[in-house]
Design a protein around this nucleic acid. Structure first.
Length: 644
RNA sequence: GCCGUUGUAGCUCAGCUGGUAGAGCGCGUCCUUGGUAAGGACGAGGUCACCGGUUCAAUCCCGGUCAACGGCUCCA
């Protein structure tokens, strides 16, 4: 037998006998490495550790430090899940079971739907199989034979028919489990050390809502118990931060069954926070050359015909209202309203760009089952603005929109962002509106703008709206979760549909370019994200109650009241707790409401004209004269400090 | 819209194979005037989501509706 040459990443070459596997090479280097290895990369392809080399090869051994290895590991855990399900529920039909960003899932079609208790049973069975130390073995099957072999697994047959080569690979796990699969996998179940099944959900076969629905089991897996526990802790933490839970605990907002799903009631405390959010944006509009407009919530259906919404978007609109003169529709978007204002008079190039901004409440008929707290609703308010400009102005407008967006997100305490540019498909499919030179112009402006600002923004082809390219900004919150918020979108369609014009230098009429942009996106959604980002402990400038004044006994009531009044007069949001309760309880309540400052007032303070300051996080800050406290508070509010 | 789960006081939940309900917190009254995260006593709150069926009898079983939750699909 001839030897084969295996080149390692450091350039060294190992000579091994033909038929050797990556695991053999790893063992040759050291048992520790062999133990740590999950999978190999051979000539750039992921490869089972126990799969023999075809010939000379470049080899990389992937250990638990490699993200690709984690994917393989999770994929193997998904197979383990499927094997457990088949042992417990023979006859269950298998769908697919891939790794995902946070773990893995496997889709099943069981005779009886799984119930939550089954998760525990299945997980137990998985550990049982894991303990058997079963190998994942790669085998090969001819397509024709395979279709017969898998005749009891209709979904697998479908996949084999569609995807398999004439000879395809499959993986066994022990004597009873076999799955059509490209692999690779870990060598044996003993490699799998930490996993947990998380939930059961419904999912359409092949992601198509025309197909039958399967039972999907989600789980997660990590190389170590420690990593798994950390991840589970993070999930717990996210649950505690859930804006729906905090919204109720802090009395910020509610959704009323009598009123309907997806419609938000802002309570007094949520209302104050929302006012801060809105005021900030309106002030910025005026500072940055936007005008503030208001447009009606219901408008004639004819308007929505002109805009094209009734032909493209009708299923997302609330049904029409037949009035005496015509049919009316609730607005799902603000654009047509702004367009009517633009179009109300003849515009000169001298007044461009025209930037019309509104905090516009729109209603969209989201399908039942899609609503989610404040994040997906049927009525929401966009910080919406439309910029009408000349083609030459596009780039600088995009730059200032992006600057505006980043300033906005930073103001609310977000530090990390990502941006991406969505472009068309070059016109091949015909599903995009507008001419090639317009797309080129706009896409060029977007990418140049990101470069000018030094933003790394990947370009994603064929992801644009049909009416123009766009750039989306995502933020990363305190838990590192991504949220898509700000968007800047070109629109080649509406200016044409509404026949928008401006008179240029040449005295002729030209069509302006239109840009849609929203920075919060939806105020409701932004509010929800803020609640989660801060776990409800809003920075002082946003906090619904900034100060709680807490007299210890009735003797200090009068003095405490003057302190409270002084705060109110100075423009702060102070709450006076004059209940006949112990100060411990008052502190506890203020603490649980996440009030930033508590002023404890006893005889000593009343005597000296001071307050004992307690901070929600840093606890006792000591005694200060009232004016000194007010000055400190003023500084924090004015600077909109987000430090706690 | 689809699959699955859930729906009991303002909130969080308990309620054993059907006999019209209970706790803690909160709320009210009273006592306690107490220095940095829960003082005590008493009391008032519920058509057990809604509609229908089975039954002598339904919070409990069955069917439907609505809503919430976990997801899927969708989000020009």
């Amino acid at each position: 037998m001839e030897n084969i040459q295996v080149t390692l990443p450091d350039g060294s070459v190992k000579s091994v006998t033909a038929g050797s596997t990556p695991l053999d090479v790893a063992k040759g280097i050291g048992q520790r490495l062999a133990d740590d290895c999950i999978v190999a990369r051979v000539d750039g392809n992921l490869w089972d550790l126990n799969r023999a080399f075809d010939g000379d090869a470049k080899l990389e051994l992937l250990t638990t430090k490699n993200p690709d290895a984690l994917e393989v590991y999770r994929h193997s855990t998904a197979h383990l899940l499927a094997a457990a399900v088949l042992e417990l529920f023979p006859g269950t039909k298998l769908g697919i079971g891939p790794p995902i960003e946070t773990g893995f899932y496997y889709d099943f079609d069981p005779a009886e739907p799984f119930v939550p208790d089954d998760l525990e049973k299945i997980e137990k069975k998985m550990w049982e199989i894991q303990a058997r130390d079963l190998p994942y073995e790669r085998q090969y099957m001819e397509k024709e034979k395979g279709l017969v072999m898998y005749k009891d697994q209709p979904m697998k047959c479908e996949l084999i028919t569609e995807k398999a080569d004439a000879v395809f690979s499959e993986y066994t796990l022990g004597p009873h489990f076999i799955d059509f699969c490209r692999g690779p996998h870990v060598p044996s179940t003993k490699k799998i050390k930490a996993f947990k099944l998380l939930s059961i959900a419904g999912a359409y076969w092949k992601g198509n809502d025309k197909n039958a629905q399967l039972q999907r089991i989600y789980g997660t897996a990590f190389f170590s118990k420690k990593d798994l526990d950390e991840h589970l802790l993070k999930l717990e933490e996210a649950k505690k931060r859930d804006h729906r839970k905090l919204g109720q605990e802090l009395d910020l907002f509610s959704i009323q069954e009598l009123a309907g799903p997806g419609l938000i009631f802002f309570h007094p405390k949520g209302g104050i926070v929302r006012k801060q959010i809105e005021d900030w944006m309106r002030d910025q509009y005026l500072k940055r050359g936007y005008s503030l407009v208001y447009t009606p919530h219901v408008m004639r259906a004819d308007l929505w015909k002109t805009s094209g919404h009734l032909s493209h978007y009708a299923e997302n609109m609330f049904a029409g209202m037949e009035l005496d003169d015509a049919e009316y529709r609730l607005k799902p978007m603000n654009c047509p309203g702004h367009i009517l204002i633009y179009r109300d008079k003849l515009r000169s190039y001298r007044e461009l760009p025209v930037r019309l901004g509104e905090l516009g409440t729109v209603y969209r008929y989201e399908r039942s089952g899609t609503m989610h707290g404040l994040l997906r609703v049927r009525g929401f308010t966009q910080d919406d603005a439309h910029i009408f400009c000349t083609p030459e102005q596009i780039e600088s407008e995009v730059v200032s929109c992006l600057e505006f967006a980043f300033d906005t997100l930073r103001a609310f305490g977000f530090e990390k962002f990502e941006a991406e540019v969505s472009t068309w498909d070059g016109g091949v499919s015909g599903k995009y509106d507008g001419t090639a030179d317009l797309w080129e112009l706009a896409e060029g402006a977007l990418t140049r703008a990101t470069k000018r600002l030094g933003i790394n923004a990947p370009v994603i082809p064929d992801e644009a709206a049909f009416y123009g390219p766009k750039i989306d900004v995502k933020l990363l919150d305190a838990l590192g979760r991504k949220w898509q918020l700000s968007t800047v979108q070109f629109d080649f369609t509406l200016p044409r549909r509404f026949g928008l014009e401006y008179v240029a230098e040449d005295g002729k009429k030209h069509q302006p370019v239109m840009v849609h942009r929203a920075l919060y996106g939806s105020i409701e959604r932004f509010f929800g994200i803020l609640v989660e980002h801060y776990t409800g402990a809003f920075p002082v400038w946003l906090a619904p109650v900034q100060v709680a004044v807490l007299p210890i006994t009735d003797r200090q009531q009068d003095y405490a009241r003057t302190v409270h009044q002084k705060l109110i007069d100075a423009g702060f949001r102070s709450e006076f707790d004059d209940r006949k309760e112990k100060v411990n309880l008052k502190i506890r309540d203020a603490q649980m409401q996440k009030v930033p400052y508590m002023l404890v007032i006893g005889d000593r303070e009343a005597e000296a004209g001071t307050v004992a300051v307690r901070h929600r996080k840093h606890a006792d800050l000591g005694v200060k004269p009232v004016d000194e406290f007010i000055a400190m508070l003023r500084e924090q509010v004015q600077s909109k400090s987000t430090a706690d």
